[in-house]
Design a binder for these strands. Structure first.
Lengths: 116, 116
DNA sequence: TAATTGCTCAACCATAGGGTTGAGTATATC
DNA sequence: GATATACTCAACCCTATGGTTGAGCAATTA
C-alpha cells in the first residue's frame, strides 16, 4: 500500500469543491466554453474561470482555443488514478470485510467470556 | 449525473493531503493510536492530532477511547461513496471511450475534407 | 501522592482557496 | 474603425488549512 504519485493532492483537492464537480458533470455531455460552465453557477465569470484553471492544473480538463472561446474538455485519466487509489480500500467496505469485523468482535467477546 | 450529497466536499478535501492519505494507509493494517499515526510523519503530535480530527469530521475514521489512548479505526463507507462518484466517469477513461474520441476526430477531419 | 504519558485545546503564523470587482486583451461583428 | 464578446489577470477581502508552541487535563505508573 505505497503512495504512488502526489498529483493525487491536486486531483482530490480539485474534486473537493462542488462547483468544480458540477463542471466535470457538465463536461461529460461534451466540450463546453468557460461561459457555458459559468452559467449555471451563480458566480462571476472570473470566479468560474479560476475554477477551470484549478481543474486544468490538476489535469482533469484540457482546453482548446476556438476563436475567442476557450473550449474545455474532460480528461479522465487522473480520475482513473484517483479511482484506482480508492479501489485499494475496496475490501474495507465490502461485505466480506464487514463479516470479518463481526468475527473479530465475537472473538473479543469470547476473550471476555474465557479466562483472559 | 446528479450531485448526490455534499459530504463529498469533506471526503475529497480530507483525501487531498498526503499525510492524511498516509494515515489511512496505515489504518488498513489495523487500529492505531494518534501517536502511532504521528510517528512516521515528522510532525508535532498536535499537528497529527489535527489531521486525525479532519479525517474524523469527514467520517473516514472512528475513534475509541482505550485508557489514555485514542484508538483510531478506518471507516471506509465514505471512501465507497467517493469511489462510486468516480465510477460514473469510468466510461471516459475506458478504452471504449478512447475509441469513440478517435472516431469523433476522424469525423471532424471528414468535415474539413468535404465542402463544409 | 507524584511523575509520566497521551493526548487536546488555544493562540498564533504563513499560505492557499473561494469569491469579488475593475481593467486589459484578443477575437468577432457591425 | 468602433463596438461587443469571451475571456484572463491583478488586486483585494475573508476564511480555511497546515503547521508550530505552550499549557492543561486525564489516565497510567512509580
Amino acid at each position: 500500500m505505497v503512495e504512488q504519485l502526489n498529483d493525487l493532492d491536486a486531483t482530490f483537492g480539485a474534486l473537493s469543491d462542488p462547483s468544480r464537480r458540477a463542471m466535470l458533470a457538465e463536461l461529460t455531455l461534451g466540450e463546453r466554453s468557460v461561459s457555458d460552465l459559468a452559467a449555471p453557477l451563480s458566480m462571476s465569470l472570473a470566479g468560474a474561470s479560476k475554477h477551470v484553471q484549478v481543474l486544468e492544473r490538476a489535469g482533469l480538463v484540457r482546453r482548446r482555443k476556438h476563436g475567442r472561446q476557450q473550449m474545455i474538455a474532460l480528461d479522465a485519466a487522473r480520475l482513473k488514478r484517483a479511482h484506482d487509489w480508492l479501489d485499494k480500500y475496496r475490501v474495507f467496505w465490502s461485505s466480506a470485510h464487514y463479516a470479518l469485523e463481526q468475527a473479530l468482535k465475537e472473538e473479543k467477546s469470547d476473550e471476555h467470556g474465557r479466562s483472559a
